[in-house]
């Protein structure tokens, strides 16, 4: 599900506390269900346990104390490795592609080459599409008459094509936007304080 890597990406621009991470995640992935605070803190706990994140202090400006987390060196490495590995071109399971692409777009200034990520993803997709096409046009009579397989392949092929078209648009959007700047953690208003 790569939820850990997404949290690491959210910490990439600077130390944040839990509420900020949830807010940023929901802003980055508006199509997904809003992240629950329980999940945020559970994930952060796991990351700290694995050494990918650390607690750097508490932030108490204008309200109750909140723990501030930051990404570690090993966490950064883990994130970049995840970005470098293209999402499997599974066609209908597109969420990982969206996650990787959005993260790559936001992570441009922090060592991730978004263009390279998108290119690698395109390559993986094209190779898979090539496999699917060769299978359905192969000379093997048994294979080529299997209508169900051909239809399934065609469905996958067309969805991969749709993914690629979206990737092209994302790449265009990337080139059009100004370079991202790191944002400091922002104070949360009192009345929206959730119960951890």
């Amino acid at each position: 599900m790569a939820i850990g890597e997404v949290h690491l990406a959210l910490l990439l621009s600077g130390p944040r506390h839990g509420y900020d991470i949830k807010r940023a995640h929901d802003a980055w992935f508006p199509a997904e269900r809003p992240l629950a605070f329980g999940q945020v803190y559970a994930t952060l706990g796991r990351l700290v346990r694995d050494g990918h994140a650390e607690v750097v202090g508490t932030h108490s400006e204008g309200g109750p104390e909140r723990t501030v987390y930051a990404i570690t060196g090993s966490g950064r490495e883990r994130l970049l490795a995840w970005l470098d590995d293209p999402a499997p071109p599974a066609g209908t399971a597109g969420e990982e592609i969206i996650r990787k692409t959005v993260v790559a777009l936001h992570a441009t200034t922090s060592g991730a080459d978004a263009e390279r990520v998108l290119s690698a993803q395109r390559a993986a997709h094209l190779r898979r599409m090539r496999q699917l096409q060769r299978r359905s046009t192969s000379a093997d009579p048994e294979r080529s008459t299997d209508l169900a397989v051909r239809l399934a392949d065609r469905h996958a092929l067309l969805h991969l094509d749709a993914d690629l078209r979206w990737l092209e648009e994302a790449a265009e959007a990337l080139r059009a936007q100004p370079p991202a700047t790191p944002t400091p953690p922002s104070p949360t208003p009192d009345d929206q304080e959730p119960q951890p």
Binding site: S119, R122, A123, L126, R127, M129, R130, Q133, L160
Partner: peptide, 25 residues
């Protein structure tokens, strides 16, 4: 893209230069 995937190589151009030259085999 489907036609491109049928080929053995993809040379992608962007703003007049080669963005990548992929071997798809």
């Amino acid at each position: 893209n489907v036609l491109a995937a049928r080929c053995d190589r993809e040379v992608r151009l962007a703003h007049g230069g080669v963005q990548h030259d992929l071997d798809l085999r």
